[in-house]
Design a protein around this nucleic acid. Structure first.
Lengths: 245, 245
DNA sequence: GATTAATGTAGAACAGTGTACGGAGTTTTG
DNA sequence: CAAAACTCCGTACACTGTTCTACATTAATC
């Protein structure tokens, strides 16, 4: 993966300003935005692992090599997709209620959004930070303006909530896929594995604590509880800080 | 990716029991374990994204097609790698101290381990659950045996801590890579992006809350604080439960 | 001991992938 | 009108996971 200085800076330019149109040469028959939209459509329909440059190009009715006129890399395309998606989320500080209500609302919606667009979580690993990501973070920090937390502490809270959401999302997305992936006979991966584990190989008493689970909470319920725990901790921290100062 | 019922069950057999040796035919010159070890060596040295069947085969001095005698899939190979790695982690309930000390110890070590072996986090997305994963979870649940939490609630705590760790790990691993990825001239991705953002395009006042950050906490410090918050919340929950019942 | 069935090995091939290259056609500049 | 700058894209290269097929090897059977 040749990540040259030039391709990195071109990607950053695309994220932050867009590229100035050249003066000479034939007119563009596409725009960066249309390329990004097509890529998102493919990712939405078939998942990121099926997202290829050729498929995006075919969607747009152009040759595969043409995409490289608009975008230096597949990595750049993915970064643009992600930042675009972040830009669609409501800004946290504009939500109603106390800081805690704002955090809960954004966390819940983030979880739902990741779940609805699983390609987001599998791609965000890219190290690019775009303007929408900046704006979102800035807005999230503003949520804590009246809490007495320092800027650094507010960052810690924001990143912690984000980490919690992403961690749960990873689990939920895997579970969702295990349910929807089916073999040629129509059995889901989840049911095959469950069948295997329940009928074979796990003798009673080998995992006693797991056996004690009777009615497992669903993933979203677990997420909600963890959010309460985390924010209880933050709230206590804020209250103590207020009592001292 | 053709995940047939047969390949899924073969993978589960490999995870849980190993495969019985056939009666006829030439002797094996390899074992599943050696294949898995070679794959882990490659992942360790070059990262998962560089892990290919041909590279593993070359490492073992055999043809690429030979690997398919031992393993049905690349997915199976990855599942075996992950479960093997999980098996190396100390069992939570054997750690010293209170439930909280045990949780903190395992969370801290998990973070460090993911960071040292980043391929783990990029692969664990696989839906297979192996015996080491079961054993680890069972052990983690035992940590809460004396807290008064129900089995279901203990699961919620374990999954929440795990989610928090994984979420932070994602961030840390991306940051680590942005630091270590260098272009041909030796500049790191992180420094290129930072240079770009600080000298261009972000006019003062556009992101006021971000500007207010002076000495950002490092990622591990943020993780430690979030762990305190989460466990403070859990502890309060446990205490209230104890007071009621 | 010879035959047959079952199995491990691996080269070649298939359908993909991201992307570099070079040529053809198009538009603007001088 | 020529030259420069540019878009478009067929082709090609080095990869990928996986299957197929031919062959060698072993064990069981007659």
């Amino acid at each position: 993966m040749g990540a040259t200085r030039k391709s990195i800076e071109t990607t950053l330019d695309l994220l932050w300003t867009g590229l100035g149109r050249p003066k000479r040469g034939p007119r563009h028959q596409l725009t960066v935005r249309r390329v990004v939209e097509a890529a998102m459509a493919v990712a939405e329909a078939e998942g990121v692992e099926a997202l290829s440059m050729r498929k995006v190009a075919a969607h747009l009715g152009v040759g595969a090599a043409t995409l490289y006129t608009y975008v230096p890399d597949k990595a750049a395309l993915l970064a643009l997709m992600v930042d675009d998606m972040i830009g669609r989320a409501p800004l946290p500080h504009t939500r109603p209620g106390t800081w805690r209500e704002k955090v809960e609302a954004w966390a819940r919606e983030d979880l739902a959004s990741f779940r609805a667009h699983p390609w987001l979580i599998e791609v965000t690993s890219g190290p690019f930070v775009g303007p929408h990501a900046f704006a979102w973070t800035d807005s999230a920090l503003r949520v804590f303006d009246d809490t007495g937390l320092s800027a650094e502490e507010a960052v810690a809270v924001v990143e912690s909530v984000d980490a919690l959401v992403r961690g749960h999302v990873a689990r939920v997305v895997v579970a969702d896929r295990a349910e929807s992936l089916t073999d040629p006979q129509g059995r889901s991966f989840a049911s095959i594995q469950e069948g295997y584990l329940s009928t074979r190989r796990i003798e009673a008493g080998r995992f006693p604590s797991i056996e004690r689970i009777e009615a497992p909470l669903d993933a979203v319920a677990v997420f909600e509880r963890s959010l309460v725990w985390l924010l209880d901790g933050v709230e206590r921290d804020i209250a103590e800080r207020g009592a001292r100062g």
